[in-house]
Each structure stands twice: as structure tokens, then as C-alpha cells.
């Protein structure tokens, strides 16, 4: 597949994608729109911005052409949230805090944390945290209302969850946890 977009055009495309999502345009249709833009600018040599206007304007025109009326952002957030997700987020936060505290204590060489053996707190928190993370990943992958942006030309996911995103999602928390151990070690 020819990639004809430079970084400015890529930003334009990403913005359009986001705005179409916000207007509740179905994923398959977003794929069509993105492919049309790509095909058109490759043919004419125009920049997406000069051929299609701003992403906001164009997304509005596409939504109007499809007769899609967006649900307000608040209604969307409310309908997407369940008590189970909220509880999971709280458990995730608490176990993250406990894990970080225990790692700091391990680094500092303290045998107990909040009155319990440090290794036990660290292990329990790590297990709970791992479970929560696994649940989030599975939920995101198999969500029934996942509406992927599919390329109409080859059926590929146009917004792939790539190596960089995974590296960031895994690497950043890992870096922070290593930081906690290092911080603890420094207090010795």
C-alpha cells in the first residue's frame, strides 16, 4: 500500500479520524473516508487540507452526508461506563499504590510495610495489578462494541495497536516501578 502522506498530512488524517469518531461515524465508513482521501491526494498531488478543508469541516460534511447525528460526549461517557469498570479502576489504583510502596520499602530494606511483610505486600499487589491489566487488555480486545476502522481495500485495521503503543503502555509503568526500587535504595 503506497504511503503518500507526510507528517503534516498524517496529523490531518489523525485529526479527521478522531473527529469522525467523535461524530459517531461507523468504523467501516471512517475507513472508506480515509482511503478516499489517500487515493484522491495521491491522484491530484494536492495536500489533504487544500482538497478537503479542515478535518473539522470535512468530518462535519461526511456526517451530514450520512445523516449521522452524534450523541453528546457526556451521554457517550455515561453509557460507556459501568460500575464494574469503576471498581476495577479503583482496585487497579490501590494495588498500584501498594505495589509502588512495597517496592520502595524493598529498595530501602524495610522488612515490613503497613504492618505486613514487605515481600507479601509486593507479591499480592503485583498479582492483583497483573490481573487488572490482563482484564483491561482482554476487554479492549474482545469488546462487542469495538468498531475498528477497517481499510476497505485490504480489510486491515487502519488504527493498529502497534509496537510503539505497547512499548509505551508497558514500558512507562515498568520504568516507574524500577524508579521506586531505585528511590528506596537511595534512602539506605
Amino acid at each position: 500500500m503506497g504511503r503518500v502522506l507526510n507528517s503534516t498530512d498524517q496529523a490531518w488524517r489523525d485529526d479527521l479520524l478522531l473527529r469522525l469518531r467523535l461524530l459517531d461515524v461507523p468504523g467501516a465508513r471512517i475507513g472508506e473516508v480515509l482511503a478516499e482521501v489517500e487515493s484522491h491526494v495521491a491522484e491530484t498531488g494536492e495536500r489533504p487540507r487544500e482538497a478537503f478543508g479542515t478535518p473539522k469541516e470535512y468530518a462535519g460534511q461526511v456526517a451530514a452526508a450520512l445523516g449521522v447525528t452524534p450523541v453528546g460526549p457526556w451521554a457517550q461517557v455515561r453509557s460507556g461506563l459501568s460500575w464494574r469498570d469503576l471498581c476495577l479502576a479503583v482496585v487497579c489504583g490501590l494495588s498500584g499504590y501498594a505495589f509502588a510502596t512495597a517496592l520502595w520499602a524493598l529498595g530501602a530494606g524495610e522488612p515490613t510495610t503497613v504492618g505486613l511483610p514487605t515481600w507479601l505486600v509486593a507479591l499480592t499487589a503485583a498479582l492483583v495489578l497483573g490481573g487488572c491489566a490482563l482484564r483491561f487488555v482482554l476487554q479492549a480486545r474482545h469488546s462487542p462494541d469495538a468498531d475498528p476502522v477497517v481499510d476497505p481495500r485490504d480489510g486491515a485495521d487502519m488504527v493498529p495497536f502497534g509496537g510503539r503503543q505497547v512499548a509505551l503502555l508497558v514500558g512507562l509503568p515498568l520504568l516507574m516501578l524500577v524508579g521506586m526500587v531505585a528511590g528506596g535504595l537511595l534512602t539506605r
Binding site: 472508506e32 473516508v33 478516499e36 482521501v37 484522491h40 491526494v41 491530484t44 494536492e46 487544500e50 482538497a51 478537503f52 478543508g53 469541516e57 470535512y58 460534511q61 461526511v62 451530514a64 452526508a65 450520512l66
Partner: peptide
């Protein structure tokens, strides 16, 4: 006729 005008017409 710009792309921004043409494709929404085709979509419709």
C-alpha cells in the same frame, strides 16, 4: 470541484 465537496456527494 474539490474533493471535500465531491466525496460527500458520492457518499450521499
Amino acid at each position: 470541484v474539490k474533493g471535500g465537496t465531491l466525496y460527500p456527494i458520492l457518499t450521499r
